[in-house]
Simulated assay, not measured.
Amino acid sequence: MAPKKTPKGKSGLFGVRQKPSGNFGVEFSEAGRRWWIDTYPSAHEAARAYDVAVWRAERPRSHLNFPEIESQAEAEMLVPQGINMKEIPTKKKTTKKPSVVVCAGETDEEAMARFSWEHPEYVQAELEYYWKREAEQKKGPKKEDEAGPSTVIPIESSSEEDWADFSEEEEEGCDDPEKEVLWAQFCSSDDEE
């Protein structure tokens, strides 16, 4: 039989590492995803829990800590508390946006032209951003901003001289007979006071 790959960690077992508390933690990875199984008091128990996860993932027997175990059912019986797999969220790889590098003897315009040729997706994203911004600006200002709020300006003059010009014009008459009646009632009410 070929020698087993040397597992990572000081425990000497696949997927098992000792925690600062003295217990042993079990971690399992499958197709780019990481799973936390549980913490066990001994490295032996932790290795058995890791083997159960290997059986469930249908990995080759060479990934087992105890390859002498013949079946998944037997492996699960050897871990009395069972396993509780929780997925560990992985950090999404963020791609670094390329920067414009100006080479010696190259003008800014030449560097920008080279960048737009090498990275058309960034140029397209920038154009879409400005198109959206321009469309929002074309919608126009809100009605409040357009006309401004209406304001009533009170007239503080109460002298009869200021009102004399207006009252004379009004008394000359009106084309509407209903308004004439209302005006007559209004003027008579002023005289009574």
Rank of each mutant, 00 (worst) to 15 (best):
A43Q: 04
F186R: 14
W36H: 06
S21D: 04
Q185V: 13
E169I: 11
K10F: 10
E118D: 13
P41T: 01
I155L: 12
H44A: 11
E171W: 09
P89H: 07
E172M: 09
V100W: 11
P141N: 14
D51A: 01
N65R: 03
T151S: 11
V102S: 11
E27M: 10
A125P: 01
E193C: 04
P177I: 03
A111I: 08
A147M: 14
V52M: 01
Y129T: 05
V101H: 13
R61A: 10
E160K: 09
R17Q: 14
T94V: 12
C103H: 15
P3Q: 09
V101A: 11
S71K: 05
E74R: 07
D175R: 11
V100F: 12
S42I: 04
E169L: 11
A57F: 02
R61Q: 12
P89E: 13
I155N: 11
E172P: 08
W183Y: 13
E168S: 12
E128L: 06
Q124Y: 05
V101R: 13
Y50L: 01
I83H: 00
G15T: 02
V54I: 03
E172A: 10
D38S: 00
G12A: 05
S71C: 02
K179F: 15
P60H: 05
E180Q: 13
S158C: 08
I37A: 00
A75W: 01
K4R: 10
R34F: 01
D176T: 07
F115N: 04
C187R: 10
D145I: 00
K93Y: 09
E128C: 05
E30A: 03
S42A: 04
H44E: 14
